[in-house]
Design a protein around this nucleic acid. Structure first.
Lengths: 227, 227
DNA sequence: CAGGTCCATATGTATATACATAATAGCGCC
DNA sequence: GGCGCTATTATGTATATACATATGGACCTG
C-alpha cells in the first residue's frame, strides 16, 4: 500500500465515522505498523488530508478529525482566452480605451498607490465567438513593466501579457453581484439594470502594485468549481 | 537550508526570470548538489511549487516553469455561522418553510434524482446581528440522514448539521449574479430588482445525492480570497 | 490555587538508499 | 521516411534512521 492507499483508507474511516469528527486518531507510528508501511508514508498521507482540511494536526497533541471541515474550493483563475477557448468558442478582444489617467480614490486604496497617481487606464472588451463575453476596466502601473516598454495590448490582451511578462507575488480577488450601468450594458450588449457578475482583482509584486482589474460578465455567466 | 528555503530560492529565480516561463530548470539531483541538500528535500520543494501551478513536472521530461501559470484561488467554504461570527456579529437563523415537496426539474437534474422525486424542502433566513444576511433554499434527500431521523433544524442550521452529521464525498459550487425576485427581496429586506449574489451548491456521498442549496446574498456582499 | 518549569511525546523535517514508473529520444527495422 | 521497440533518464515513491520542534501535561513552587 502506497501513500495514496493510506490516504484513501483513512478517508474511508473518516467518512464511515470509524473516526468521528473531533476524535484523535492513532499516531503515525501506530498507523505505520497497522498498514505495514514506513512512518514517512503515513506522514505523507495524513499531511495531504490535513491540507485538504479534513484533519487537524498539532505536534504532541496528535491528529484529529476536523470538527467543522472547512471545504476548500479551488478556483482556477485562467486567462480569459483560455476560458473562452475551453468553451469551444473563438476568442477575440478589443481595446476600447487606453490612456494615462489619475486613479480614482477607491482604486488607489485598493492598489496601495497614492491618491491621484497617474496610471495606465485600459478598457477592453473580451469576445467569445464575436459576441461580448466580458468587459474589463484596468489600471496598470507601467513602472513595473520590464524594459519600460508599454505594449498597446492589441495583439495580446493585458491579462495574458502580464501573466507572461510580469511575475507577481500576491494578489486578491473579490466577487460580487451588481447592476450594469448604461455604459457597461452598452459595451456588453445587455440592458442597463441587468445583473452583472463582477470580478475585481488586484496584484502586486514584492515591491510595487501591478494592476487592478474589474471584470464584468453579463447575465448567464457562472463561476463553477468542484469541491 | 530546509525544503522551504529551497522553495523560496526557486521561487525567487522564477520571479526574477533567472528561469523564464517555458524553461526547463536543472534536475533534482543537480539542485540538491547546488543547495547542499538531499534530493528528497528538493523534491518536496518542487512538488510544492508544482501543486501551486508555477512549475510543470513530467517524468523524464524534467521540470519547467509554467508558461501560463494557472493561479489557484482557494475559497474556504465555511458554514454561514462561522462567516457571520468572523465579522463580529451575532448569528441567528429562522426556518421559513419545511415540507416534503416534489423537486422542480432543474433541481432534479442538478442533483441527479428522478424528476418529481419528493425531497425535504427547506427555506431559511440566516441573520447577522438580527438583520437578514442570506436567504437559503434547500432540497434535502432525507434517505441519507443517519438513523432516518429528520431534525427540525431550528436549533442548528441544516448547513451546519449536515457538515457535522453527513460526511460527503463530492460536490460542486456555482456562483452567479441575479436579480432578486419580489419574494426574495422581501425575505432579505431589499428591493425587488436589486442584484443578488447567488451561490448554488450540490453535494453527494459516494452513493446518493445529499442536498442542493441555493444561497442568496444581497447587495454589498463580496466573496473574497487571496491568490 | 496560580503560575512557572521541565519533560515526554507526536508531528515535522532531513538524509541516503533503493526501486518504480513514465515518457522521450534514439535506434533499428521494414 | 515511417513505424515500433528499447534504453535511458528524471521524477515519483518507499524505507530506515536521525534529529528538530512544538506543546500538553505533569510537576514543582510561591
Amino acid at each position: 500500500m502506497g501513500w495514496e492507499g493510506v490516504r484513501d483508507e483513512v478517508l474511508r474511516r473518516i467518512r464511515g465515522r470509524v473516526w468521528a469528527p473531533g476524535d484523535v486518531i492513532p499516531g503515525e507510528e501506530a498507523l505505520a505498523v497497522e498498514f505495514g508501511v514506513a512512518r514517512a508514508t503515513v506522514n505523507r498521507a495524513l499531511r495531504d488530508l490535513a491540507e485538504a482540511g479534513l484533519l487537524e494536526r498539532r505536534r504532541k497533541a496528535g491528529t484529529r478529525v476536523a470538527l467543522l471541515p472547512v471545504r476548500k474550493a479551488t478556483l482556477e483563475i485562467s486567462i480569459i482566452r483560455q476560458e473562452v477557448e475551453a468553451r469551444g468558442e473563438v476568442y477575440g478582444h478589443r481595446v476600447l480605451e487606453r490612456r494615462m489617467e489619475a486613479v480614482p480614490l477607491s482604486v488607489a486604496l485598493r492598489m496601495g498607490v497614492a491618491a491621484g497617481a497617474r496610471l495606465l487606464f485600459l478598457e477592453t472588451l473580451h469576445l467569445a465567438g464575436g459576441r461580448p463575453f466580458a468587459h474589463e476596466v484596468r489600471w496598470l502601473n507601467i513602472a513595473v513593466l520590464p524594459g519600460g516598454v508599454v505594449p498597446d495590448f492589441a495583439a495580446v490582451s493585458a491579462n495574458e501579457w502580464l501573466v507572461q511578462n510580469v511575475a507577481y507575488a500576491t494578489g486578491d480577488i473579490e466577487f460580487s453581484a451588481e447592476l450594469a450601468t448604461a455604459a457597461e450594458a452598452a459595451a456588453l450588449g445587455i440592458r442597463a439594470g441587468d445583473p452583472v457578475f463582477v470580478t475585481e482583482r488586484a496584484t502586486w509584486t514584492a515591491e510595487a502594485p501591478i494592476t487592478f482589474v474589474r471584470l464584468l460578465h453579463g447575465p448567464g455567466y457562472r463561476l463553477r468549481t468542484m469541491v
